[in-house]
């Protein structure tokens, strides 16, 4: 079971990283989401895998899983949600300002339809 979860985590990471390397805002956001699933699973797994022992105190139960990673993952999920919401709006704003959804926000002008790098300001 550990092996299969480990593979799942690695798979999610790989897919997430690949998508984060794409050139358009949307796949990058999808990639971020996949990566955050992977991260959350990994963080959760740092408490090791325990079946049927939720950390809810009850008089007749003696075995509980580690509650700390769960609390950490909860915080991470919430923060991740906030960040996702923000980057989605940022992507929308980039689209509205550049007329394109390229991550480098190339300004769309009549003569530069091709994949041209943005003008440097530096």
């Amino acid at each position: 079971m550990e092996a299969i979860l480990a593979i799942a985590i690695g798979l999610l990471f790989g897919c997430g990283v690949y998508l984060m390397l794409r050139a358009r805002t949307f796949p990058v956001i999808i990639g971020l989401t996949l990566t955050s699933y992977a991260v959350n699973l990994f963080l959760f797994a740092s408490g090791r895998l325990v079946v049927n022992a939720p950390p809810i105190i009850s008089a007749d139960i003696v075995r509980y899983t580690d509650p700390i990673p769960q609390a950490l993952v909860l915080t991470a999920i919430v923060i991740g949600f906030g960040m996702t919401a923000y980057i989605v709006t940022l992507a929308l704003r980039g689209l509205s300002e550049s007329g394109d959804d390229h991550v480098d926000m190339i300004e769309k002008t009549a003569d530069s339809a091709s994949n041209q790098l943005p003008k440097r300001r530096l």
Binding site: A6, I7, G10, F13, G14, V17, Y18, L21, A38, F42
Partner: peptide, 11 residues
Amino acid sequence: LALGIGLGMAF
């Protein structure tokens, strides 16, 4: 790159 990181993380 994705393969490297994915395999690494799985391991």
